[in-house]
């Protein structure tokens, strides 16, 4: 296990979720799940974060915010789409202003479906993301430019 997965700092962004998934993300920090046991910290700051957790779909208003947050995170980094809305647009998919899942805007590494996504599933998703993060740190996984294009 490399150093990257020993200290994953998280940035949580609420796209246009119903807040169901967000409550579950915060539940991970509570005494019952206590993800700080694994060194996971909810930083709330893209410049400190290694993992971007996004709940909710991308819409016309927040797509720039999502790309901006993604661009501000220093490499290596991974993105986890949490909940059905974030993976595909979910029940909001047909709304006039919704663009779809997170992967319509930035590259997503791990998809965690569920409505709402359970804390156990979130933790598992983060663990999967750590695997990708390690590979990326070692230069063995695809990396992207700040705007989300695949780097040659």
């Amino acid at each position: 296990m490399g150093i990257m997965s020993k200290s994953p700092w998280i940035l949580h962004y609420d796209g246009s979720s119903c807040n169901g998934c967000d409550i579950e993300v915060l539940a991970c920090l509570t005494p019952l799940y206590d993800v700080e046991r694994f060194g996971i910290v909810n930083t709330g700051n893209p410049k400190h974060a290694d993992i971007l957790l996004i709940t909710g779909a991308v819409n016309e208003q927040n797509k720039e915010v999502v790309t901006n947050l993604y661009a501000q995170m220093p490499d290596p980094k991974v993105v986890v789409a949490l909940g059905t809305c974030a993976t595909s647009g979910g029940i909001f998919r047909e709304c006039y202003n919704v663009q779809g899942g997170i992967d319509t805007t930035i590259p997503v590494d791990v998809y965690v479906p569920g409505c709402a996504v359970r804390p156990e599933a979130i933790i598992e998703g983060v663990v999967k993301a750590l695997g990708v993060l390690e590979l990326r740190a070692a230069g063995k996984a695809q990396t992207h430019t700040p705007t989300g294009k695949v780097k040659a």
């Binding site: 046991r37 060194g39 410049k47 220093p74």
Partner: peptide, 27 residues
């Protein structure tokens, strides 16, 4: 963490944090 009824990170966590920060890209 104990005061908040949590278990908390390993005692060496701050060192892992700093080592990780050092291995991130300079931005």
């Amino acid at each position: 963490a104990r005061l908040q009824a949590r278990v908390g990170p390993p005692v060496l966590q701050p060192f892992w944090d700093v080592l990780k920060l050092l291995s991130k890209r300079r931005a």
